[in-house]
Design a protein around this nucleic acid. Sequence first.
DNA 1: GTAGCGACTGTACCTTCGTCCAATAGCCGG
DNA 2: CCGGCTATTGGACGAAGGTACAGTCGCTAC
Lengths: 205, 205
Amino acid sequence: MQHWIIDREAVALDNWRAALPRAQVLGREALAGVRFAGDGIIWVRMRFGEPVIQAVSGVDRSGGQPLVVLADDPNERVVLEALAAGAAGCCNSHAAPAVLRQVVLVVGNGGLWVGQSLLTQLVGATTRRLAQLGEVRANDGWTASLSAREAEVARLVAAGAANKEIAARLKITERTVKAHLTAIFEKLGVRDRLQLSLRVNGLKI
Amino acid sequence: MQHWIIDREAVALDNWRAALPRAQVLGREALAGVRFAGDGIIWVRMRFGEPVIQAVSGVDRSGGQPLVVLADDPNERVVLEALAAGAAGCCNSHAAPAVLRQVVLVVGNGGLWVGQSLLTQLVGATTRRLAQLGEVRANDGWTASLSAREAEVARLVAAGAANKEIAARLKITERTVKAHLTAIFEKLGVRDRLQLSLRVNGLKI
DNA sequence: GTAGCGACTGTACCTTCGTCCAATAGCCGG
DNA sequence: CCGGCTATTGGACGAAGGTACAGTCGCTAC
């Protein structure tokens, strides 16, 4: 598994080096045009006072790799914003190497890394919000009629990936991606990938 | 690591046995007074139609072990309720052993196991909620660099409209729509209409 | 005036998307 | 074992999306 570390100054802290010895460190300015490919985790350092949006912006997420925010000043708000920005987790920049390795295990296997204190708040708020929305979207059930593979493709499309990228990520041909998409469109009754994206993202029923 | 499986009928499915060979299976009625001790994971099966609360209630959580809900009928709502009830994750009762082992890895290391499909919903809902609260960005400023006409086109694209539809709606030619889009992509630094949609809808930074 | 900008349109061309035909292979339940 | 579902791929093709180069028109600022 590859690790990419993104920092404004392209500096890697000692604890990162210890936990992720083979990581590739990238500066913010060197980020333009960089496309991440293959299995791996993207780590983004958020320095003191730096907004999450700014730290995460410019990072290519089309490869589908999970992103973890390393915050100099972590707090619940920051973690929430990081998750909202699509991160799979957020932890202290100066966390011990053992903790970072744990994060790798969790995030690399599709989990979310969230501090316990935040969990209650996040879930509570989200639950209330969904209840307010009439629970329609929470129960949209777009996955129900799809096979596991189709759902996987649907999610990647919803995240903005192109067919070629999906093919590379799932290690199948572009032709197969198209086949899955045709099936998905038919099952969900949408006409193209953009409508699918809206549906998956709960913006359209 | 110890695994405790709790089921109303004290039945263990084959996939559980495969993934958690040394697990201890407990019936609901045998649960009274049981105190879990040591490192491990508590698995609770939620049968069809059974409410989360009922499935989780009565389980001793004082030992601090993470709890995972195995749902016969998993959907976003169930997962959210499970998380709200203090579970560290929720997955399909009939998930493949490989998936269950992955869950062990994630949850055992302090992570949350959330299905990818829910993740999208959760993140989307959280984003919208934050936007509503004005905490993060009611408007991340994508309109700032666009002209009035471009913003209009951008909104229609974000809503899922095709170029031809936009042209008809705005009473201009499809060619002009394309011209506006080219300018929009350039200004916002996105590569196509799907990425634009995500940006406008606040799902991607 | 004229330089700049935004809106608008045209021709041409390439890429990506989506669908049609068809096929092989594995798995699972009856 | 067979029917049905799923995953996979191929070739071909029309439709839609997107770019490059070029041009007109009206408004505004210097």
